[in-house]
Amino acid sequence: MTSSTTESEFGESRESDSDNPSVTKVARSKLSIALAAVFCLSVIMGTGPGVLLVNRPESISGIPLVYAWGILWYFVQVAVVIVASLTVWRSTGVAESCRTHNAPSRPERNSAERGEGELPR
């Protein structure tokens, strides 16, 4: 239940996400799942079987139907990316920059497990 100020990789001071990190984590996780679901839906509807719903030479407000369909899913996808960028990705980036820099990456951990010493340079 603490609030702390940390310095990020690029030297800016940032407040940590919330007083209760576990609540924030759950909310962020739910938001991530919702955004992923909407994005997958937009891919399936915009470029997959969903196209069959509009595949005829008609127009809506003067815009050809297939074109309007593409524009609609473009706005949906862009909205998902904007929300993800401003919420989920931002907090992940901050958390990452707050973490200790000594933690090894997965490839590093693997080479360490194999007992190999120096990484290729």
């Binding site: 470029t47 899913w73 996808q77 998902v80 993800a84």
Partner: peptide, 18 residues
């Protein structure tokens, strides 16, 4: 017009960037 739908590949690339 089918290429308007092909353009929807670009946000997928955007997501993959991150």
């Amino acid at each position: 017009l089918v290429f308007a739908l092909v353009s929807l590949n670009v946000p997928i690339a955007g997501v993959a960037i991150y």
